[in-house]
């Protein structure tokens, strides 16, 4: 993607890598309208404070712009600053329970956009995918479960091809 620290998987059958694909989706009114219409019950049942489809779409647009600009800014910095910036942005996935409690305390964040990455040996992030997560846990919906499967498959791919060694530290992270 940029520098030596950020990469993204591109799956067979897809024309774009995951980062490009996701930011294009999150800027696509037709995709977002369809997504939130189909997941309206998750808005109404209110893990977040936004309860209308239109409100959710506009909120998503704003968050995507913010996130993308943050990554764009990072792409213009030095390699060491990029790594530091990525460490601040990506948090370990398995601490998500703690993050969820924090989100409950500060629902003003309203940020349901997720990017998932494998962090290899502390200094390389490879984006495996992303989604709009409206529920408390990823296991509650098919589209978020799919991201867990992608993370797992990507990890297996890296190990099976000897791209990373079994001694390598691979962490699952998310924005």
């Amino acid at each position: 993607m940029f520098g030596e620290n950020l990469f993204a998987f591109k799956y067979s059958g897809q024309s774009d890598d995951e980062l490009r694909r996701l930011f294009n989706l999150w800027a696509d009114p037709e995709y977002l309208e369809d997504f939130f219409e189909n997941n309206k019950s998750d808005l109404i049942n209110g893990y977040y404070d936004i309860h209308t489809v239109e409100g959710a779409i506009f909120e998503t647009y704003d968050h995507a712009v913010y996130l993308e600009n943050r990554l764009l800014l990072l792409s213009e910095q030095s390699s060491s600053e990029q790594l530091k910036g990525l460490e601040e942005i990506f948090k370990p996935l398995h601490n998500s329970q703690t993050k969820i409690l924090q989100l409950n305390k500060c629902k003003a964040q309203q940020n349901w956009l997720r990017l998932y990455a494998l962090r290899v040996d502390k200094n390389v992030y490879i984006i495996t995918g992303g989604t709009i997560k409206l529920t408390r846990t990823m296991q509650e919906r098919a589209h978020t479960m799919q991201e867990l499967e992608k993370i797992s498959q990507c990890r297996e791919f890296l190990l099976s091809k000897g791209i990373v060694g079994v001694e390598s530290l691979i962490e699952e992270t998310e924005i």
Partner: peptide
């Protein structure tokens, strides 16, 4: 540079992602 990073760079496509171009266009 770790061996993993070396391997990842070798595996990575030489063709850069167009994400940055898209992002800059959206910003403009």
């Amino acid at each position: 540079m770790t061996k993993s990073l070396d391997n990842i760079k070798q595996m990575a496509s030489q063709e850069p992602s167009n994400w940055i171009d898209d992002a800059k266009r959206r910003q403009t």
